[in-house]
Every structure is written in C-alpha cells, then in structure tokens.
Design a protein around this nucleic acid. Sequence first.
DNA 1: TCAATAGGGTTGCATTATGAAACCGAATTG
DNA 2: CAATTCGGTTTCATAATGCAACCCTATTGA
Lengths: 152, 152
Amino acid sequence: MARKRFDDSNCSVARALNEVGDWWSLLIVLQAMYGTRRYVDFQQQLGIAKNILCDRLSRLVENDVLAKVDVGEHGSRYEYRLTDKGRDLFPVVIALRQWGDKWNPAPDQAALDLRDRASGRPISPMQVQDADGKPLALRDVFLPDLDEEQAG
Amino acid sequence: MARKRFDDSNCSVARALNEVGDWWSLLIVLQAMYGTRRYVDFQQQLGIAKNILCDRLSRLVENDVLAKVDVGEHGSRYEYRLTDKGRDLFPVVIALRQWGDKWNPAPDQAALDLRDRASGRPISPMQVQDADGKPLALRDVFLPDLDEEQAG
DNA sequence: TCAATAGGGTTGCATTATGAAACCGAATTG
DNA sequence: CAATTCGGTTTCATAATGCAACCCTATTGA
C-alpha cells in the first residue's frame, strides 16, 4: 500500500517530515545551502537517479522549499534556489550535521569546520535554550497543557 | 534496486540520515522523548505497521539510538529507552518541530507549547550561533578549507 | 484446568518507491 | 549539420511499505 503521509497530522514534526523527511530531500536542501542551483550539479554531486531528483525537486518546489527560476543562459535554463522557508532549515541541517559528527564521525576524515565569516571562529554546538540562552536538556522541558491534564 | 545507503559517505548529514532519515525513525525517537517505551504504545500512538515498527526499533537499537531493556513485569517484557546518542537528537527534533510550526502550522490547532520546567517560560527558537551566542544566518558561515581552495 | 487476552513478533501478499539505463526535445556549440 | 548540454520522461527490475493473518509465551480469570 501507499506510504503513510502526515499532511494532516496534528504533530508538526510529522508534517515537517512529510516535506523533507525522505532519504533525499534534506540532502538536496543541504547541497543548495552549499550553493548548488542547477539540475545537473545536484545530479552529479549527490549521485541521485535523475527521475528521483526530478520528483524531489518538484515536491520541494511545490512545498515552497525551493523556487524554480528560469534563467535564459546558454544551456543552463533553470535554477533551483532556496526560499526563506528552505533557508530556515539551516538549524535543522546543522543540528543533524553536528549529531552525525559527534556520534558517527568519519573514520579517516575531520568533520567539516563551519566558521563564522565575521570572526573566523567555529560555530557553537546547537542546543535547545530558554529565553535567556540557558541550555535545556530533554528532561528540563515540559508541556504545560498535557501536564495539567495528567495532574487533573 | 536497493535504496542507496550513505554509511560511508564523507558527509555527516548523509550518515545521520542513514540512521534516522526515513519516514518513521525520527517519529519513534520523538515518541520516546515524550516518554513512550513499550512496543504496543509506539504502535498505537504512531499508527505504524507492526513489521515496520519491529524493523525500525531493531535498527535504532543496532545504531545505539535506543536500548532494548528486558523488564520482567507482568506482560510488558521489553522497554525501548533512549540512549545518550538518542537523547542527543533533541536539538534536531526541536529544530524540525519549530520549522514545522512556523511554515506548516496546523490549521485549527495551536503549536505545542514547550516550556522550561524551571522558569515556566517557553523555549526559544533554535538558531545557529557563534561562540558568543550571536545568531548566525546561512550566509554568515563558511568552510575555511574549501574557501581557501577556491581562492587558490 | 482451560479458555481468553496481552505483549512482541513473523509471514504473505499487494501496492509503491527507488535506481539504472535508455530515450527525448530544445537550445548551443563546433 | 553532427555532437553536446540541460532538463526531463519512460521502462523495467528490485526493494520498501502497509495491512491482515498468524505464532509463541505469559498472564488473567473463571
């Protein structure tokens, strides 16, 4: 049967995964963050099958993560550019990258060294924070509504 | 043909997606963060097929995201608990949740109101930061090595 | 004691999704 | 005017998914 979709799930994580939760979409977004814009470049850099790339690009455009722009230049006719919505996946991608670097480091390769362009210093590890910037662990957060219900 | 795997990719995002990048794994981790531990509860709360749940739980255990614990209690014999590696997905899940809340809000429902247990205040939006906590946008970061190569 | 139920899985089967390669049409290049 | 390039679509074999049915072990419960 068809893969289960989560378009109308009441969980925003499920709805997010519905748009970028497959094997390729987030990698395409990542590649776009590196500056890739053209179909052939995505295809070569990711090693993705062309029909799958077409499908994913279409869905990302449909979901307003990428915008398909007609550029009339010699041969390269379209560009896929990140929208604001797509750029807003930056924290997601960085969090995922840091998790991968920490728990599945490449055996013979240093992790990518992302740095602040202004200061030249490495970016800091992503963390969930309270309003003052104090780091919060999983056990430090709660859902007021749910916990009230459970208490009542 | 077989789905492409990224076990040995030089990209840590690809390696991360290889472990939790399918349609269900991250939702299982999310559910585990809510406190779910038992097979039947995952099954009912997620509405996932039993064989798929088995497969995903096994893979998450294999990848040390969950730990399978034998609890001899009446009927409920096993628990799947988050490991440190699994708990470390907290920023990823929160980033994804906030992205979903912002760009695909539920039509007739408020976003989940996660709060700091100590202060009672809402958690702040996830952001990529420099060493001082200054927020960084996509355009503010760069890869020193790559940029040197390109300059050279 | 013996049937009913719950937990945690497997198995079979139909439906989809994926990957590789071949093919296509328009525009450029040589 | 033949060969490329870009951006796709088509075909086909293989893998993944979802559902329902089944299984085995404990535990109830009467």
